[in-house]
Design a binder for these strands. Structure first.
Lengths: 100, 100
DNA sequence: TTGACATGCAGGTATTTTACTGCATGTTTG
DNA sequence: CAAACATGCAGTAAAATACCTGCATGTCAA
């Protein structure tokens, strides 16, 4: 199976990866998926001094979801966020690969 | 040899790749390197309707150079631009690889 | 059913990005 | 030297981004 993505989707994938906070969220979700917004905020606060507001992290999660890099589902009043590596693989196979 | 790059450099590399115009410039330079700004503009104009101004392309080239994705050298009054794939390889080896 | 919890939505601000125009600088060639 | 050429620099405007605060909505549990 090979999914073709348009330039705009490639734009979105690379732009989304171009922010250290969002890459860090992906790294967190690779360790363990199915995390809530609050858990992600807590991980950030626990790790070091630089903690961002809940709403800011939420915006980053929205962008990650728009890029397809995370998948969400509701469990009661909690929305869980899980990693989805497909866009990275598609971006690599479709464009980046030829330079590696 | 393994060059460690900081988060800020990873940011810059991915952000730079997150624009279709810049990816297209890289694709052009992979076909043939050592191209001048004017040659790149001409390629854009020849390919299709959507042609950007010389200064706009120049700004994209500046960003590509800051990210290390192109290397430049002067030949008389002409500045030539060549592809440098190292940053893509570094970004892949240092961060992206674990998701592929 | 009410209080605590988890998230969403609206808006505001400062910075960055992307495009442009116009002018300046330096280099080659006739 | 002067004209043509290749690029650089300055400034502008619109849009997007990244952060914030405050309030609203929906859900679980006592």
């Amino acid at each position: 199976m090979f999914v073709y993505v348009h330039d705009e989707q490639l734009d979105l994938i690379f732009k989304t990866l171009g922010d250290a906070t969002r890459r860090r969220i992906l790294d967190l979700l690779q360790e363990r998926s199915e995390r809530s917004l609050f858990e992600i905020c807590a991980s950030f606060a626990a790790a070091d001094g630089k903690s961002l507001s809940r709403q800011t992290i939420s915006q980053h999660l929205d962008m990650l979801e728009r890029a397809g890099l995370i998948i969400t589902s509701w469990k009661g009043r909690t929305k869980t966020h899980s990693l989805n590596v497909a866009p990275m693989q598609v971006a690599t196979n479709q464009w980046l690969k030829k330079y590696l």
